[in-house]
Design a protein around this nucleic acid. Structure first.
Lengths: 249, 249
DNA sequence: ACGCTAGCGATTGTTCAACAATCTGACAAG
DNA sequence: CTTGTCAGATTGTTGAACAATCGCTAGCGT
């Protein structure tokens, strides 16, 4: 009953409630573009969360029959959801073979960082005059620091991602926002391939704080320079570890 | 038989041949991400082309029944294609009302130009050392000039778009390329709302050429500066005319 | 004549069952 | 050990069915 190819069993999750009724977990559900909609979108949200949470590990196959059974929706509707997530590059659709949680290649990682460098730095450069709205940035850094202190690296990882999302958000462009959401969601896939999340997040907490400080001081150019180094370092470390981990399979 | 809400009749187009067998029109088919695939993707390609060609004008409704009949695919498959195009923002899915060819708001136009400024300029700035590969850029400019001389403004428009795509392509990032494809496809929607395409393309031909020249000379910084002005001018002109045209309905 | 409501037709939303196409793995023949 | 073939399983696609919803119109009462 409801079993994926990697031997994992799909549990309950047959609720599919419309808006997340739990306000505590609500902030985590911003993965969806917006608006209420049909069943397919709701299914997509559920799957997106499961993937982001690492419940469906990269490379695992998502059987149409199992999942449609577990979520109590028809295969057709499920396929619509699959399409959605494939387009976001979270799933990979191999013809006649089914959909799989995407396994990033090292090239993908590099490209993702290329985009991040492009977008995040450009966002900082095209900033207007000093009084910026850093509410989201500030919040993300804080929750990241608290989570690190509490040793909760899952939350810390999310906060880190949200920090960069907030940075890009300073460009004030919905399309840019969506691009970043998509790209960072992809990046999360890479983290799930590796253990030891602390190693990839802890070193950057202080740099997040520093960048934020620069911004509050109105030194956008300085912040941008720091961010560029940040991304370069992060990219190198991650790509190296990832390549290693990937060949060791 | 096969009629859209705006009174337009859907013609034959029931072929759905797999790969475009006509090598001459092949370059025009790069709208698709890649790879052969299922029926839904092919349907999406057909619809994408029809929209880009202005055959389905912005605002028109795409009836499931008509289109599925005209293309000889089931409603389910068609809906998968719809989903695809909705995600690219070419179609708008209003719940229980059907899918419509998107009508851009002025805000959308502005955001699109924001993204273009961000991406295209960043692509030029992050360029490496002078010997760049400007094959695509050069080609786009040339075909644009020729088309203008021949008075074929449809082709000129496409060439112009391809020019900017090629510019962004210098960043050498697949994800950036896809972003640009998507954004420029959206932009095309705006052009279809307005008549007189010449007005929006002719003034920029010489500037395209100038930017290209700068690049061949290795002056990437100069090219970037010119491009920024270019986009600013274009945005202003287009947004103004568009707002006017939009309220005059 | 005006506004409101009930009902009707049309279209979408979702499901289900069936069949064709394709892949995977195992088993047998060489 | 390799190759070919077959059977089972899964996806790809279809067509029909029914529920949900929307827009409109006719009819009602005032």
């Amino acid at each position: 009953m409801a079993e994926t190819a990697n031997g994992r069993t799909v549990p309950d999750l047959s609720d599919l409630s419309d808006p997340a009724p739990d306000p505590a977990s609500a902030p985590a559900s911003d993965g969806a573009p917006l608006a209420r909609s049909g069943t397919a979108e709701r299914v997509a949200v559920v799957l997106r969360d499961r993937i982001a949470a690492g419940y469906f590990p990269p490379g695992s196959r998502l059987s149409e029959e199992s999942i449609s059974g577990a979520l109590a929706v028809s295969r057709n509707t499920l396929r619509e959801a699959f399409r959605l997530l494939s387009h976001e590059r979270l799933l990979e659709h191999r013809l006649n073979k089914g959909v799989f949680v995407r396994v990033l290649a090292v090239d993908d990682l590099i490209d993702i960082y290329r985009v991040r460098l492009l977008v995040e730095c450009a966002a900082l450069r095209n900033l207007g005059e000093p009084p910026y709205d850093l509410t989201d940035v500030e919040a993300a850094v804080s929750t990241g620091e608290q989570a690190a202190q509490a040793g909760d690296w899952a939350v810390c990882s999310t906060a880190n991602i949200r920090f960069h999302q907030a940075l890009a958000g300073l460009a004030n462009s919905p399309r840019t926002d969506e691009l970043m959401r998509s790209v960072l969601a992809e990046l999360r896939l890479a983290f799930h391939v590796m253990a030891d999340p602390r190693r990839f997040h802890e070193p950057y907490l202080s740099r997040n704080r520093e960048i934020t400080n620069r911004l509050t001081e109105g030194d956008a150019a300085g912040a941008e320079r720091m961010l560029a180094f940040y991304l370069e370092d992060s990219r190198r470390q991650l790509a190296e570890a990832y390549a290693e981990r990937l060949t060791a399979r």
